[in-house]
């Protein structure tokens, strides 16, 4: 409870800091989400994509 009220008082209470938090968390969420999805896609399609086979053709 003390932690959540501290977070609220220092970060969320003022509109200026709250807006900063929204922009900042959106940035990090987007990067993390994209990275996670790409990692899943690349491991799911391992060996099928061009980046997996291009080593066979270029020295």
């Amino acid at each position: 409870m003390a932690l959540s009220s501290a977070i609220y008082n220092t970060l969320f209470k003022r509109t200026s800091t709250f807006a900063l938090i929204i922009v900042g968390s959106a940035f990090f969420f987007e990067r993390g989400f994209d990275l996670g999805c790409d990692t899943f896609f690349d491991s799911y399609n391992k060996g099928k994509q061009w980046k997996d086979i291009k080593g066979n053709y270029s020295q």
Binding site: F40, F41, N45, K48, Q49, D52
Partner: peptide
């Protein structure tokens, strides 16, 4: 091999 929701084309 590219059927399915998440399957890419087989580039080979």
């Amino acid at each position: 091999s590219h059927n399915g929701w998440f399957d890419s084309l087989d580039h080979a």
